[in-house]
Design a protein around this nucleic acid. Structure first.
Lengths: 340, 340
DNA sequence: CTGTTAGCGCGTTCAT
DNA sequence: ATGAACGCGCTAACAG
């Protein structure tokens, strides 16, 4: 270490002087000199070396299903900001919600000795996740719950969001409401479907299984496919609650295919309030999820687990219904879809 | 290393067996046994340890201005896919095109001994970049050029894109075309402005400095501000070429504020063809940039530089004009903006 | 307060 | 083909 040579002290002293936590144990004056020389020489600690010794890489792994879904960049941003305060950095990996790719990425991150994992992948029953937690590496899941008792979670209040949506639709006069549910193996898909059914009960609306379709993925294409399915069944409806915004966009596409105007004949609502949702045509009514906070809180929780071995916890963030152009009162009787 | 103990060989042998590059130098049978045991024990090489020895972390740093701009997730995706093939991983950092944050991130990445940098930050005169290259760490810049002779670059064919845009507008009959240019300290901002002016000459159109405004950032808000500026100047125009899609969205907002219909009275065109551009209202006419390829090629170039100390090069990718709803013929004389 | 020593996990070199 | 020894950069622990 040439800083040591330059100042004329031992490397150990330099190490202590440069680490804020141990700086107090070295003469203030020499410390100042060391810091000065280090800066002048452009010295940066080698985190790989430190990691070898401390077993801490100051790096966490973030598993994101798809950065292309506007939901996630905001989450990542929250994560980054929280981590940076602690001198941490995130290694980001896209998984496509593909189990195999997920395993590969986890292996890659594990071999880089990440200090913890932030997992926004939606799949419910990850044995991969199980393995990590068993290894003793802290895990926080984002925007999903986990069956695993050893992971913390930060989630949005999905039941409340769906409840707000349903209250809005019922207030507008809708009675035949369809649901394009998210994938069954995701916790959000399940939670939102449950909340949908609970709302049906609350308002004394009939459960019609023909009005519920499950998407196989959270994507625009899947939303369109589900909607085509719904049309084939030929059962009347005046509103569609989509599992998330991408599904809602797919629903709108299918509506357009069939020249069914939204919101005049069918209302559509999404979930998440992705960027640009308000600029779509029609501007999408949806539930805003505080994505930045979701990431920020998740990162804080993880740092807590790393440093203070804090107990496991689940944080639920409030959501807000954003009413825009894609919802309106249902058409008059006799003028609706399928002669409703 | 407990794998060694389990198999009954020396750690050196295990190391050789587990490293594909040196596997040939060990008995095939023992190698197989070692690999088997390693898998059974869930052993993963510690990249930090290897890095210390080899000075290679198999990790590169990616500086992205803003993941929230839909342009970048696609680039990142291309980067990831190319890197993964080589066993590399990307450390992603958002910079906000903020010089100070950029330095902090570079320091953080440098201390993690990244093997190279992929820089999509747009700012032109980075001394930070200069320093990195001087350190001998390979750098590839993405979607921008660099004054630095030691960095490779992958860029889109901006001049061609703007030329196509102008040909389209002129063919529609536009003669008074405004330009909301990108920031002057970005290479894209400069290149597109130059191409805009060249096209003016090509079609014998007058240069009107009052019809050119410079944005201070690539953002929606900046686009709106520029447009308000343009209105204040009171000079007539029938089309606006925006420096990128976000600026174009800001331009559309300003038009809406003033109840000026697009494309009936003013045509607007963007650049990049971000996701959802075709779902906006009106659907945005813009220039598609092959973002995934941009990232993928950039990563390949960087790996080449790391492994083969390849010479510096610049790759230019072709672009495509996407004609949608935001462009149309100009209004008839006398009905246009400012009495045009 | 500071110097010394040892060892984190790996790859390399030299010996066998 | 394999074992032994060393050192990469750093910090914890101990000695002074």
């Amino acid at each position: 270490m040439d800083v040591a040579r330059e100042v004329g002290v031992h490397v150990g002293t330099v190490s202590r002087a440069l680490n804020p936590a141990t700086r107090s144990r070295v003469n203030a004056e020499t410390a100042a000199r060391i810091i000065d020389v280090a800066r002048r020489l452009g010295y940066e600690v080698n985190i790989a070396g430190r990691a070898l010794r401390t077993q801490r890489t100051q790096t966490i792994g973030a598993l994101i299903p798809d950065l292309t879904n506007p939901l996630f960049p905001r989450i990542v941003r929250g994560v980054e900001d929280s981590l940076e305060k602690a001198g941490y950095t995130a290694l980001i990996a896209s998984t496509d919600n593909n189990a195999q790719r997920e395993r590969r990425m986890i292996a890659a991150l594990l071999s880089r000795q990440v200090d913890g994992f932030l997992i926004a992948s939606a799949r419910l029953e990850d044995q991969a996740l199980e393995e990590i937690a068993q290894d003793g590496v802290p895990v926080v899941v984002l925007n999903r719950t986990s069956a695993n008792a050893r992971t913390s979670a930060v989630i949005a209040d999905d039941p409340q969001g769906i409840a707000d949506v349903m209250a809005h639709l019922v207030a507008l006069g809708h009675e035949r409401i369809a649901h394009v549910a998210g994938p069954g193996d995701t916790s959000t898909g399940q939670a939102r479907l449950l909340a949908f059914e609970a709302a049906l009960d609350r308002y004394g609306l009939k459960h019609r299984s023909e009005l519920v379709v499950r998407a196989e993925a959270y994507s625009i294409a899947a939303g369109t496919r589900c909607m085509r399915d719904l049309f084939k069944r030929g059962k009347p409806f005046t509103a569609v609650v989509a599992g998330n915004d991408l599904l809602a966009l797919g629903v709108l596409d299918a509506l357009k295919e069939n020249r069914i105007p939204c919101p005049e004949r069918v209302s559509v609502v999404g979930f998440n309030d992705i960027d640009f949702a308000e600029r779509m045509s029609p501007a999408l009514t949806t539930v805003r999820v505080p994505t930045y906070e979701l990431g920020a809180r998740g990162a804080e929780l993880l740092l807590d687990m790393i440093y203070r071995e804090r107990e496991i916890s689940t944080v639920t963030l409030p959501v807000t219904l954003m009413i825009r152009e894609s919802t309106a009162p249902p058409p008059l009787q006799g003028t609706g879809l399928f002669g409703l």
